[in-house]
Design a protein around this nucleic acid. Structure first.
Lengths: 341, 341
DNA sequence: AAAAATCTGATTTACGTACCTCAGCTTTTT
DNA sequence: AAAAAGCTGAGGTACGTAAATCAGATTTTT
């Protein structure tokens, strides 16, 4: 039978009230008594019944999600998943507030973080912009004792409690290996298509990609990254130009959210021989392109997993509980036309 | 504010006891009253607070896991994950009993299922052997109203409530596409290495693999599967023979648990040119082989996810609650040397 | 040594649900 | 019309924890 507070009280020879004071770090317990109670807790292997405690406290976890306003499919999907989590609020005892901030911009994000730091949130999740002022704001949130996880894009270590996103360097390396292996003996140029290299996740993907390309596939030439700002029209123009300029392009790695600009170009003016194309983010469009052979592989991160993981981790941190690390690792999903969900 | 039983009682103009009778399908409520209460429940959007209910019931979920006795790394890992779940029993309100049965054999499994059908378990998870007598036993478990999920290897649809495992046909197809793409222009023979084609998951992987090979890579010749019974010594002998017999082997797909026999052969007598090797199951050995280049890709299913998912689903079924389908989909993990965990 | 401050114990209520008993009512059966 | 059966309400206790109040004990300060 699981020990309860009553067992501890009996075992330590104190009253329930004293056990409660020790457990919840309330004042009014002499040092010696506190030690006795703590020993009893350790000896009996007591663990608080979180469900009962939450019931007694009528606890809800007030969480804040700070999301960039961004109409690309991935961010829209992320937002949808946060909304789905809001829909589960009553059963999960959460109250989730969403703060919208302009994308790729730090001042609004800093303001939002400072609002959180001054508020009563039990935790905050945000898509980080990796800038010094954001790091400072994060430090203030941490100083306020509010658990904090970064979502999708990370912030230089140690400030946040957890990162709910993929390892983007590994993703870039994986894309490079797939690209190189799929190309086999073929020679030519590879063009990476990014949104903006100011964003940490894009930069890391490109770094990983470039590194493996240089190291293992030096017969292929890596062009400088095309920065399409995730803007379909701009991407379409830039990629069109690049393809005209370099007729020997044999590989395209779209590491951002520029697929809506890229896919039409590939479908309307197919190159021959077809280049190997590897994309990030599984959407209806990229899924269809996989099936019809326009593209060769899609790397993906599951926004639903990220949101659910962020909430689980925030809850655990708020309660001072450990997390199952393996469960919270966000994996890089690799999709070929054969293993689409 | 979330509505409670008190709100329903007030709204329906009945007492708490009657609400309780309706909610828990206890007798003693007139049809008309029952309808009134149900309407109030629907109108207020009441959902039972599972945590409070479990507290009141002092509920524990008695689950049974039926696991094959099998010393291969994947099954050992699966067992470890079940034990980890047992370690979390007190916080998760579960009581997990493990029943060991001989691998690949149905009579003991049938006996175990019948024991479950006659017992008081709130759910059962088992690694299915796809045989008629197992299906019959599963039907008896279902008839006893006990939620049931298959783990790792499935049983012909409709009998179980859920399957916590990967789509093995898709896994085979994925392996084939990777193999074909990695080989590029190379010609030669491909040898599949299975444990036993009597097991549904192995059979399905081979089916998916063969199909894509025939369809998209007809310049490659697929040899009949070597059945190594997941026995290292046997695998080593059979694979050695096959490689000697066919010097033009350019691809190996190990779809079972025969890696402990296969890897030593590849490492001690490297072929030249090196064949493309794709394995199932990420272990220390396969991970090391990926890093040193002996093999090219590993397909994996995460045993921890499968066990946790099985428990979540069993709990939900026991409580008559919906599951988040996307959360419970077990994904095929593809590992290259670049995205190892 | 008295007063004040601090510590501790006992007890109670609450959270939302389950489940039990008992009394009183209504309907059905004889 | 009386007896039996079925339905409903009222009220209680319980689950494990939180949190509050109050009284009594101990220590510290004056």
């Amino acid at each position: 039978m699981k020990p309860t507070v009553h067992d501890i009280a009996r075992s330590a020879g104190v009253s329930l009230a004293t056990v409660d004071r020790v457990l919840n770090a309330r004042p009014g317990v002499r040092e010696g008594t506190r030690v006795r109670v703590e020993e009893a807790i350790a000896a009996l292997g007591y663990v608080r019944d979180v469900a009962a405690a939450n019931l007694a406290k009528s606890r809800v976890y007030p969480f804040v999600f700070i999301l960039p306003v961004n109409e690309n499919p991935f961010m829209l999907g992320l937002r949808r998943e946060v909304e789905a989590a809001i829909g589960r609020s009553s059963t999960e005892r959460t109250r989730i507030e969403v703060i919208d901030v302009p994308a790729l911009e730090s001042t609004a994000l800093v303001a939002a973080l400072d609002k959180v730091a001054g508020g009563d949130a039990a935790g905050v999740a945000f898509v980080a912009v990796d800038a010094p002022d954001v790091r400072d704001a994060a430090a203030r949130v941490a100083a306020a004792g509010i658990p904090m996880v970064t979502l999708v894009s990370d912030l230089g270590q140690s400030l946040r409690d957890h990162y709910a996103g993929i390892d983007n360097i590994a993703a870039g390396r994986t894309a490079a290996t797939l690209m190189g292996r799929f190309l086999g003996q073929r020679q030519g140029r590879i063009v990476p298509l990014a949104g903006s290299l100011m964003v940490r996740d894009h930069r890391e993907r490109l770094d990983g990609f470039s590194e493996v390309m240089a190291q293992n596939f030096s017969h292929l030439t890596l062009l400088p990254a095309v920065e399409g700002r995730d803007d379909p029209a701009l991407v379409e123009r830039l990629i069109g130009e690049t393809l005209r300029q370099h007729p020997d392009i044999c590989g395209i790695y779209s590491l951002g959210a520029g697929n809506r600009g890229l896919l039409p170009v590939l479908e309307q003016r197919p190159l021959s021989p077809a280049p190997v194309v590897i994309l990030h983010e599984l959407t209806e469009a990229s899924s269809a392109a996989l099936v019809n052979g326009t593209i060769d592989a899609v790397l993906n991160q599951d926004a639903g997993h990220e949101v659910r993981s962020a909430i689980r981790v925030l809850k655990a941190k708020a309660d001072g509980l450990p997390v199952i690390a393996a469960q919270e690792r966000i994996r890089i999903d690799i999709f070929l036309k054969d293993n689409l969900p």
